[in-house]
Write a protein that binds this DNA or RNA. Structure first.
Lengths: 232, 232
DNA sequence: CGTCGACTTGAACACTTTCAAACAAAGTGG
DNA sequence: CCACTTTGTTTGAAAGTGTTCAAGTCGACG
């Protein structure tokens, strides 16, 4: 564990309000590791041993069933994943793999459970964090059920464009096939949909996205804070 | 509030471990109400005021976007809903309506937030409850993305059949159109799919479901604890 | 420069929705 | 208790959406 990692972690909403002594103890049992791209960090069904924190790089959370697989979320710095499985001491519902060279910190789940039982501030932070995760998945599920694929793609682009504001362009954070799977469609279908959306003010060339007509694109996506998350 | 309601609520996992004095205080600010079927209890986007507890009846959680709507979950006794919105003091992501004549208890959200800050046991219960909700939505989203509609219907039936074990029959808990929407399909499509599944050991007549060949049906559904929940 | 993987494109196919109509069941009012 | 309305369910045909398979293109990297 690098000393420089600690302040960043300490500032995460999850760890921000806990007692310093508890924070130190929690991170004492933790260890950091660097992984190349494409490494499977956890496998769905395995018992939950560690809370993972992404310091650098990017991690894909994905689910498998039979021969099929789909990406459920992308975690980028600084973010945590599989908090819920650690808390319930239950099997992971999702697998995780690095999409790029990544630096990950792993906090043992038993330490986690021990600390939030004696640090009320940490308990409250955990509650807030979990509630946020829950709401994120609900939004994702709502998007899948209420929007068709064209609308989902448009909404994805609008969301990332807002993050890049005031620019009217941004770079795709991950490969298109991962985005396609996240949006619940095949790569072929995403490719065609992107081409189709050129008529609605979207230009995608390789990894580079430019929006030439925000209003037209937003008219397709009909962004909604209850689906896409709060404005920021 | 009926005196007879209290013991049932007290035995819920969410309230089981808290101090009696805190429980009493929490429920003191609460009130119970009886609703006929079809009443909209909460509307998505409204600020979260109350944690709701279903004592009798059934409540549908649903989401709307534009002209479309879909049901996200069914809550039956004894169950709670919209805990996450109360905790985050954020707008509801889902609307709720009674499907039958229902008895609902409403606990003010500020009381909730106040109590788990001073009762560590309640905080832990809240964390566990939320983690459970989170995992339930993840499973639902996984099902939507990984299974096709025929598989989702088969899995739904297998899941409810297991609950009815050792019987090989059960009654549908809600209308078929609600089930269809929950499974992410149209009523017409559900109707056709049920008919198609007769070739795989399923018999549905009105609200009554009989499974004539469990193995065949399970071969279609391929039940998996990571999608359908733990065995019970 | 060649190879590999990701991306794109096209055509055929499978699945799902939509619209329209018929049917069934449950509740209403005479 | 029976017609009658209302609402949910089923069915069919047509249209729309998304997937699969196969082939070809592009770009990054060794």
């Amino acid at each position: 564990m690098r000393p420089s990692d600690l302040p960043e972690i300490r500032h995460l909403p999850l760890f921000r309000d806990m007692l310093q002594s508890n924070f130190e103890q929690l991170l004492q049992g933790a260890y950091a590791q660097n992984f190349p791209a494409g490494v499977e960090l956890i496998r769905q069904g395995d018992p939950a041993d560690f809370l993972h924190i992404v310091i650098e790089g990017a991690v894909e959370l994905f689910a498998e069933w039979g021969e099929g697989a789909c990406t459920m979320a992308i975690v980028q710095p600084i973010g945590t994943f599989i908090l819920a499985a650690c808390i319930k001491d239950a099997p992971y519902l999702m697998s995780a793999r690095t999409l790029e060279k990544s630096r990950i910190i792993m906090v043992p789940a038993p330490d986690l459970r021990a600390v939030f039982r004696r640090d009320p501030e940490f308990a409250v932070s955990t509650i807030t964090e979990l509630a946020g995760c829950y709401r994120a998945v609900v939004r994702h599920a709502k998007g899948l059920k209420l929007r068709n694929s064209r609308e989902r793609v448009a909404a994805y682009m609008v969301k990332h464009l807002r993050r890049a504001a005031p620019h009217m362009a941004f770079g795709l954070p991950v490969e298109k096939r991962v985005i396609a799977s996240y949006l619940g469609m095949t790569p072929e279908n995403l490719s065609r949909t992107l081409r189709q959306l050129e008529a609605d003010g979207l230009r995608v060339s390789g990894t580079h996205v430019t929006v030439t007509d925000y209003d037209r694109l937003a008219a397709v996506a009909r962004p909604d804070p209850l689906l896409d998350g709060p404005d920021p």
